[in-house]
Design a protein around this nucleic acid. Structure first.
Lengths: 214, 214
DNA sequence: GATTTGATTGACCGAAGCGGTTAACGGAGG
DNA sequence: CCTCCGTTAACCGCTTCGGTCAATCAAATC
């Protein structure tokens, strides 16, 4: 690709990225025309082909940038270091929302690209994905303290359930093309509050040792 | 449309429906070629145009059939009459799974069609949808008995949360193109069991009047 | 003011794909 | 042998595709 792309004003770069995410997230690779991307970005198709030598290079650049941006944002959020489970979920969601505010269609693009079947790009996607997965640390449910939660609860299931609910909540917006990050945040906050009330052990309940009961 | 379509063996009709759901669920209306549908269905494009006079008619027929089939299946499931909240959720999910076994892509098709923007079909979709919504009864959370659940819980939020979690669980399969209805059912069952343990009031807890404590 | 330079684009190319039609095929029934 | 009818390959005119290129234009340089 043409290195002059990086000399463009940041806002113009982002406009091009977002146009690409948008178009590629709505149709499979083969049915996503470059001309449509150029139109969304507000530039001519010829200029887009001036920065990227062909459609495939543009697509793979989008994929790579999307992965890198996500990893960076997640690491900066501190979601991985946090001890508190709810705090870590909150940090993760904050990062997700920050991404969505800058790149509304990046998430949908990532899902679609990950499951893309077109032989022209699928191999490159998969191999670069494996690379990222190798670096990316696995989740770490084992570090939480079971005594914090109501007795007898299946923690694995609880975590799974919380994950599904937050995904379902987000999808509610995404599937109708609504990018209201503030609305999502509000809904998510309500979810977390609800979880805390339901899952966390109430002080003074039949724990083996309740030292704090002021 | 050609009434001879209905004289076709049922399995062939279903193959055509499924081919249509599949293709139209993966790209927007305009980018979903009829030829591809014919290929999936295992017939020639000419024959498809023999049954449906054009692409639009085929699309709207799919939409209409999808709506009718869903409504029928939901009504038969008894999900609307059930008093027990979990029982009603279970019936609903059973119906959903039965549909998915027969028409794997119908759900994705319905979502995509509902949000379709193409002026050639969007008006017809919207107006027929309003028709269905007028008939379809609204949810009825008010009928459940708050005393069955742990005290102080926000029932509205609980219902919302359960809905999101089940949607998120399903989406986990759908987004990766996996139609394993058995797997979905197993996951969903585990969800319901988890909910029952967490949300239902344990006998002997501090209710205002615990008459049953044998 | 003339000239160079580099970003940007309208117009274009051959190829492919689109929705839709038609003439012909082929097998079953009379 | 002919007739019917479900079925299709081949075709049509048109649009759209990925990609190219010569021309445009404004700013920098002389």
């Amino acid at each position: 690709m043409n290195p002059k792309f990086f000399l463009l004003p940041e806002e113009k770069q982002r406009r091009i990225l977002n146009a690409g995410y948008r178009v590629f997230s709505q149709s499979p690779y083969r049915k996503s025309p470059v001309s449509e991307i150029a139109e969304y970005a507000g530039i001519s198709k010829a200029l887009l082909f001036h920065y990227f030598k062909n459609k495939k290079e543009l697509y793979l650049y989008l994929w790579d940038t999307c992965a890198k941006t996500t990893v960076r944002e997640m690491e900066q959020s501190g979601a991985y270091e946090q001890k508190d489970l709810f705090g870590s979920m909150d940090s993760g969601m904050q990062a997700k929302l920050r991404l969505m505010r800058q790149y509304p269609d990046m998430g949908s693009f990532a899902v679609r690209a990950f499951y893309e079947k077109d032989p022209e790009v699928s191999l490159d996607i998969q191999s670069s994905m494996n690379q990222y997965l190798a670096v990316h640390a696995r989740r770490k449910l084992q570090e939480i303290n079971p005594d914090d939660f109501i007795p007898g609860i299946d923690l694995e299931m609880m975590y799974q359930e919380m994950y599904w609910a937050s995904e379902g909540c987000l999808w509610e917006y995404i599937k109708r093309g609504d990018y209201d990050a503030d609305g999502m945040e509000k809904d998510f906050r309500k979810l977390v509050d609800f979880w805390k009330k339901v899952y966390l052990r109430k002080p003074g309940e039949d724990g083996s040792h309740d030292k704090e009961n002021v």
